[in-house]
Design a protein around this nucleic acid. Sequence first.
DNA 1: CATAAACAGTTGAGGTTGGCAAATATCCGC
DNA 2: GCGGATATTTGCCAACCTCAACTGTTTATG
Lengths: 142, 142
Amino acid sequence: MDYDDDQMTECWELLFDLLLTERARMPTIAAEFDLSPTQVHVLRLLEPGTTVPMGRLAGGLGCDASNITGVIDRLEARGLVERRSGERDRRVKVLVVTERGLELRRRLLLRMAEPPEPIRRLSPDDQRALSAILRRALEPTV
Amino acid sequence: MDYDDDQMTECWELLFDLLLTERARMPTIAAEFDLSPTQVHVLRLLEPGTTVPMGRLAGGLGCDASNITGVIDRLEARGLVERRSGERDRRVKVLVVTERGLELRRRLLLRMAEPPEPIRRLSPDDQRALSAILRRALEPTV
DNA sequence: CATAAACAGTTGAGGTTGGCAAATATCCGC
DNA sequence: GCGGATATTTGCCAACCTCAACTGTTTATG
């Protein structure tokens, strides 16, 4: 199944390098909005118009469900999200972003979308090629 | 200075997606070696044969110097790294990886080098092209 | 040479995240 | 209606993170 192991590994190592380098940006950006990196991650996952059960959030963050309670507590205390009991199933609590939360989320995503140095320095051709390859890599498995 | 803002932003958004997806792998891999993600990051930065002052480590991790103390305390307690007073300047303490640390580090890096699904599924041509582009992106500024 | 400023690392307080186990409330099948 | 799953919460504890204050060492300056 693997075509060329060395080629693949080198590819991943480069990407991994970029990943670690840019990982350091997250706490900084989060701090600009008075948020923790986790809170940023949560806000990102709460797409406007949709309502997400807390359990699904835990899945999305890849962490234990018990953590989410505290994270949402703090976001709710700041009036950015709201807990509502599920209509069909009253065990679940679904999350909705408040007006204030949406406003913050919009600015936050805009800020995070600013490409970092390594991307900015690429030629337009490289950028186009990179986008195309990444789209193929992230394509959902059919 | 910016060629095509939309093209660049799309490129970064795709990469950012991949970054977030793969970020979740880190804690899992770290746990396989009884390490925290931060400890992994530190071990990765401590290249064999070199000696790194604690301050530089803080820079590499993008965090306050005071964190490093505790992180290194735990790594040292497990006999993976060693603190030594700097020879030229006795304020600094440089870190060296022990024999045990090197062994663990080797296995750890090998494990982390395993390419994840999105990379494995790419064609050899795409992998080659991706490597080339990433090399250009990460090229040190001359 | 002496004193002050700058610097590396540590310590302590306070807050957020992380996992695990136990408790609570609700749902589903029988 | 009863018993077993399921969603969230709570409590406990460890790690990480920042900031401010402190120790020891170096460097600059008068």
